[in-house]
Structure formats: C-alpha cells, structure tokens
C-alpha cells in the first residue's frame, strides 16, 4: 500500500523551477498572437482593458500569477495525471477519483457526489462549489510540474486553453471555481495573495502582451 509522498516531492521541484524561471526572466520572445485584433468586435474591445505590450511588466505580473496557479488551491485541480491532488501538501487525492471525460469524475466517483454546492463544515471535509470539476480530458490544462514559461505559453494557447480568447481569459479570473480557491474550507491555506491582487496581476500579464518568462 502506498503513502502518497510522490506529489509532495513534485511540488518541491516545481518551486525550484519557479525560482530559476524568475531569474531567467529577461525579456522573452513574445510569440503569442493573443489579441488577433482583426476579428474583434467593437463590443468586445470596449470591454477589454487597455492593451499595451510591455514585456518587463508582463513577465513580472506573470511571476505573481504563477505563484497562485501552483499553490495547492489552484494546482490541486490541475494535476499532471488524471487524479486530483489534495491538501496543502498536494498529495494524490485519497480514494483516487478519476478525471473522466468531462472532468467531473466517473461512475460512483463523480466530484459532486462528495463535493457539495458549498463547503462542508469541519476539518478534512470536502470543500464545495456547484461546479466542482477538473479540466476535461481533452483540455487538461495541467499546472502541476509546469515551469513558468511552459505554463504561460499553455495558458494562452487556444488549442490548450479551450479556445479562450483574451476576453474569455480575463473573464476567467472571476470564474466561480477560480474564486473557490479563496474560499477553500476550514484548515486549508489560501493562495499567496488576495483574489483582487491575483486578478490585477492576471489582467496585467495578459494586457501587456502575455509574455512568457524566459527559460524552459
């Protein structure tokens, strides 16, 4: 029988990557055609914050974004495998629930069988959200083990992010499940900054060009 220490070690290596990534974050090559202005409608443009490419500001903002994304509250549901992670040490979820095609679990082990619309009171009880799920099987959006550079590129790649454009990405900061990271239930640590700070950094990163930190 296994005591799941594997994922804990993984987390440490991710942190190491993060440090290296930041050290190397001189201006990277900006290769992401995010804005794709020609296709934008006036309506959507008006709802977007000002757009001004600035690789230094962008990379700096992503550095903050990254610390949130790889914190247990976000990464635990963006695992590298098909089993979510659990706890502040990001161990493999007890009882090994599977992602399933739609990200909502399989058979008798669907997320919402335990995860209720709201947090269950008490320590070590299932946190809740009406829409609790992992990314679906065809768009796994893995955070675990990703370097800052890899994650930045992945987040804005329409093929990997569920065909989200700039507007949708910005909106995603206020997604119900993203917000749930800041309401994690008793005994769980919060992401390393407030949601407002995270949202600001997220939007800054995106609107200054969504540059990826240099490095692998």
């Amino acid at each position: 029988m296994t005591r799941q220490t594997k994922s804990k070690r993984y987390l440490h290596s991710v942190k190491a990557f993060a440090v290296i990534g930041v050290l190397l974050s001189v201006i990277g090559v900006m290769a992401f055609a995010l804005d794709n202005g020609k296709e934008k409608t006036v309506e959507s443009e008006s709802s977007l914050p000002a757009f001004k490419k600035d690789s230094i500001t962008s990379v700096k903002a992503f550095k903050q974004v990254y610390t949130v994304l790889i914190s247990p509250r976000c990464m635990n549901c963006h695992p590298s495998g098909n089993i979510p992670l659990q706890g502040d040490d990001s161990h493999l979820h007890e009882m090994s629930p599977q992602r399933g095609t739609d990200g909502k679990g399989v058979y008798a082990m669907k997320c919402s069988n335990c995860h209720q619309p709201t947090n269950t009171p008490g320590l070590h009880t299932p946190p809740g959200n009406p829409n609790w799920h992992l990314p679906p099987a065809d768009m796994k959006m893995v955070f675990q083990g990703r370097t800052p550079s890899q994650l930045a590129k992945q987040l804005i790649d329409p093929k990997q992010n569920g065909h989200k454009d700039m507007k949708k990405l910005i909106e995603h900061a206020d997604d119900g499940l993203v917000l749930a990271g800041w309401n994690p239930g008793e005994g769980r640590t919060l992401p390393p900054m407030s949601h407002a700070e995270f949202k600001k950094a997220w939007i800054t990163w995106l609107t200054t060009g969504a540059y990826a930190p240099k490095g692998k």
């Binding site: 029988m1 005591r3 007890e94 009882m95 090994s96 070590h124």
Partner: peptide
C-alpha cells in the same frame, strides 16, 4: 489519528 483521512483504509485496488 481522527478519522479515515489520517488512518487510511485500504481500498479495492490495494
């Protein structure tokens, strides 16, 4: 140890 979350029980695959 308080409950099955820290006194883990073997499951079917074990």
């Amino acid at each position: 140890q308080k409950n099955f979350y820290n006194y883990l029980m073997p499951r079917i695959s074990d």
